[in-house]
Amino acid sequence: MQNALLLTELHALRDQVTGVMESAVATVDGLLVAADTDGVQPEVVSALAAATLGLGKRTGHEVGMGELREVVIRCRGGYVVVYAVGQIALLAVLADEGLDVSRLHIESRPAVERLNTLLTQAQSRN
């Protein structure tokens, strides 16, 4: 099942990167696809992450800094990081303030790639 595979990816990300607490995959327009969450409401995170990603892309484009890598929000209690997954989806990662940021950026690239493959497979199969 595709959703189980997506969840496996999210669990693996939490296992591999110190500090990652929760994560969710959503469509670019903010609808939840799969979530490995604990305290937060995944639907809310999905919708806000979609807005965040759009704003990040637009801002980067306006100031001429090229393609968006990811949006990083740093708060007192941790980080919210949003990655684009291809053209159709996004990955939102919630982490505490001890997050190993460099490790996340290394591990998330292949994870985003795999998520993209899973999602496009699912789309083409239907």
Partner: peptide, 8 residues
């Protein structure tokens, strides 16, 4: 719907 992703 036809797609594997949720739609509005």
């Amino acid at each position: 719907g036809p797609a594997g992703l949720p739609q509005r």
